[in-house]
Design a protein around this nucleic acid. Structure first.
Lengths: 258, 258
DNA sequence: ATCAAATTTTGACAATTGTCAATTTTGGCG
DNA sequence: CGCCAAAATTGACAATTGTCAAAATTTGAT
């Protein structure tokens, strides 16, 4: 039945997505925006035309799969995604979550294939910056690549922190850092209000953080009992970020996807 | 006293390093070799002259430190290094180990500063590919950056595997994967003989893998008792890589540093 | 060769987290 | 509005790993 749901959604290309309570990100707050200048005048145009290259992805549908040929950089416009890989039939490993304004697939740019798959966590919309031949960028290529390198390095540093987090920190610290990071990323893209919506299952959070689902549930309860956070269903509000920060020893961090 | 040792070594620049039982890597087996073509004819020359740009680094001495301005890519010629960062006065986190033929510092290339520090694990020698302005590369810049992107992406995938390893695997699996990875890297750079020398302390291995020193010691003993490996002091030989691989579910992996 | 310091090994025990199973809650759909 | 499936919660227990302390071994310097 999930398949049918997908088919239904696929045909409504360009329309509004049902069931997404998150507002879409403004183009100016999107990481993709900074890339557009490289493409001006060579076929991939600036924002108005660019916006028409959107794609609707239904909850559970995959945006791309591992080893699929690279066909461009995706930016999440609305909704959210997880990147993950199914390793030797022992279950999946989730590498990251992507919220509106963040980029997906950039690290396939020179290898030519995606190294993992991306699945929509809810009904979502993405913008695609398509390019088959980077050479079309001409004199812009070097500065474009420079930008790519910068983002990859950011990602690298994020991954190193993640390794530290997942390898050496307690469940409390991991979950605290996770919540703070997410809050910061939402704020960065213009969803600065009070609290945010968790788009992923606790199961996914557990997988991402290297914990069991039960530990995630129990740790969140502990946070609730200490009045550090307010969690009702999918809605989260950080009641005492300062305290959470000190428990977690969290310091600001690059977001995955640049 | 460590300081004095360093000073002594610093003055013997270019000479042979004492106490290194590892042979130096041949230039043709070094990751840096592939970069040289980009620099031909613009001041940084091909291998013979390039080799004169070497630096001796004594055991315990730092090759560079965090936030220091980027001044080039290092390749390990002889000896070994660890990359690490001291996070909020709670001890260091080791991000990687580097053996002859591998590169250090590449990810500082566009940010402009190193994001961690690198310390010699033994008396070592490095080659420096120095460059202040990439622009001097002229028309070669784009293809040089392409190479850099490829290496960064490899590194990214390695880091993702590392996160998986450290976050979700048992001590046995982590240590098995560590040994297999190291053996493979030594083989790749021409040290294919029987076994290799562990250049780092068990303490460092523990730190890198997110384990305690004691667990590393005990797990190695278990491997020894199962006759999977032969460990005498620093010398390691894998007696049954096949079995180790199946215990570990290890599959080949990019090396850190490209 | 010898000695001191650093590293590794070992044991006992505690703490954190995972596993399994059952129950409750939530969310989507008719 | 209520039903059903998915998700989350809870409890009991087990297993892995960490911590602390002491002993043994290795390493490096004299």
């Amino acid at each position: 039945m999930r398949i049918m749901e997908q088919e239904k959604q696929k045909t409504t290309d360009g329309g509004n997505v049902e069931g997404v309570d998150q507002t879409e990100v403004a183009c100016e707050s999107c990481k993709l925006f900074g890339f557009l200048r490289f493409f001006e005048g060579i076929g991939v145009e600036s924002s108005p035309q660019f916006l028409s290259r959107q794609r609707v992805v239904a909850k559970g549908e995959r945006l791309f799969v591992s080893d699929q040929p690279f066909h461009g950089i995706y930016a999440v416009k609305e909704g959210s995604f997880k990147s993950h890989l199914n390793v030797d039939q022992q279950g999946e490993q989730i590498y990251g979550f992507y919220i509106p304004g963040e980029l997906l697939g950039l690290d396939a740019i020179r290898v030519g294939v995606y190294g993992y798959q991306a699945t929509a966590l809810e009904n979502s919309r993405v913008c695609l910056l398509p390019f088959e031949q980077l050479d079309a960028l001409g004199p812009n290529l070097a500065s474009f690549q420079e930008q790519v390198i910068r983002i990859l390095v950011d990602q690298l540093r994020h991954d190193q922190r993640q390794t530290l987090l997942v390898g050496r920190k307690s469940a409390e610290e991991r979950l605290g850092a996770f919540l703070l990071n997410l809050a910061e990323r939402y704020a960065r893209h213009g969803f600065g209000g009070d609290g945010f919506r968790l788009p992923m299952l606790q199961n996914d959070i557990a997988n991402y953080l290297g914990l069991s689902m039960e530990t995630v549930s129990r740790t969140l309860r502990a946070f609730r009992e200490q009045e550090l956070v307010n969690i009702q269903g999918r809605r989260v509000r950080l009641l005492n970020p300062t305290c959470l920060r000190s428990i977690t020893q969290y310091c600001a961090d690059a977001q995955p996807g640049g």
